[in-house]
Simulated assay, not measured.
Amino acid sequence: REHRALLEQYALIASMSARGNCYDNAAMESWNHSLKVEAIHGEHLATREQAKAHVFDYIEVDYNRIRLRSTLGYLSPEQYELANVA
């Protein structure tokens, strides 16, 4: 009930596939795993602000610019964009 109230409050639409479809959340599960293993595991962050800054840094620097993607031919998004600008 609380979940549904939050969805309505913020006008969010939940992603739901047919019952038993295990691939619906595969991309998000993969992202959560990467975040936990590469950025959070073993870190000791004293405040919420430190945690937010740490996660932001991981997303904006490591994940979005440096991390290689199989869908981009094992290039980082930054390398891929540079190679395909011309």
Rank of each mutant, 00 (worst) to 15 (best):
Y80H: 10
V85S: 14
Y23E: 13
E43P: 03
A86W: 14
T71M: 14
L35R: 03
R65T: 07
E8L: 09
F56M: 09
A39M: 00
A18F: 11
D57F: 11
T47I: 00
Y80N: 05
F56I: 07
S17L: 09
V61L: 14
T47N: 02
C22P: 14
K36E: 04
D24V: 13
N64V: 06
K36R: 09
Y74I: 04
G20Q: 05
E81G: 00
A14R: 14
G20I: 02
E81S: 05
A27Q: 10
A51Y: 07
Q9C: 07
E43W: 02
H41S: 08
I13G: 06
L12K: 04
L68W: 06
H33W: 08
S70W: 09
R4E: 07
I13A: 11
H44K: 09
R48A: 11
F56R: 14
N64H: 06
T47P: 01
L45Y: 00
L12D: 01
Y63E: 03
V85H: 11
I13Q: 12
H54W: 10
P77I: 08
I66F: 10
Y23M: 12
R4M: 05
E2S: 06
N32S: 03
L12M: 04
P77Y: 06
V55Q: 02
A14S: 09
I40G: 00
R1W: 12
R1V: 10
